[in-house]
Amino acid sequence: MPVISYIDAVTQALREEMQRDEKVFVLGEDVGVRGGVFRATDGLYKEFGAERVIDTPLTESAIAGVAIGASVYGMRPVAEMQFADFIMPAYNQIVSEAAKMRYRSNNDWHCPLVIRAPYGGGVHGALYHSQSVEKLFAGVPGLKIVMPSTPYDVKGLLKSAIRDEDPVLFFEHKRCYRLIKGEVPTEDYTVPIGKAEVKREGDDVTVISYGLSLHFALKAAEDLEKEGISVHVLDLRTIVPLDKEAILEATAKTGKVLIVHEDNLTGGFGGEVSAFITENAFFELDAPIRRLAGPDVPAMPYSPPLEKEFMLNPEKVKDAIRELAEF
């Protein structure tokens, strides 16, 4: 199997889906001639032309709104928000419209659309190119939220998202784009939305994570093995719908749970996972659930030492795992 990068997996999925289904088209800022500011849509403009790879004005609300209108008409739009930070003007369209179209029309109309957005920090992106935004959408029924961590999952899940009959938010951690590489089959495959995956088996402590943080957890697990701590790592992959069976299984495996995400602690998705475990698997727990997350400050600082402070890393994850292991 060829080894490709996380971002190449995005491009491959888009290209193959556009080849497979002429209803699929992409729209966003700089996605055409430039191939995207991260080059996620590289080559698509040349292959599919300006009508299926639309360089839009700077107009996030219309990017989402146009995707909704076109999807209602039977198309399969994939809209790109250049940075997740800039999704805010589109919030009304996504939350009030895309999420509710099927429900309020009693199943008459629906929105099979994907909104892709690079999120996350650690790339010196500063306040407005580093945010995690999943918590702003996770409590909105009607949306699916995918947050893959590996090239294999990116490609398989993006294909599933494009083929899905409902709106999917597809958040790509931008630090993963070129950092994370992995094997991806050349033949067509999909990864189901709503299924978590155990990325590492272990017996002492369970780490539940997604996105870039998942890789910190894997690195921490690898290092801690030498210290005699065996870590079980569950990659949620999609946070909505949430694979609750997998969470229960992973909890029961060790009885000690650490939830890790880069989004802020308060209101972050870890709180939901924690509440679910407490309500449904309290007697499986041998220690209080621990959350490791971004601090409750308004934004990722630009100052390199402060950015480093904000960001998670394998060391921080290791410390949290050790505490749990010793509990």
């Binding site: 219309a62 076109a70 209602v72 008409y73 039977g74 198309m75 739009p77 369209q93």
Partner: peptide, 11 residues
Amino acid sequence: LPQAMGASWAA
């Protein structure tokens, strides 16, 4: 309004 533009694009 933006959604109507989406239907126009689809057309």
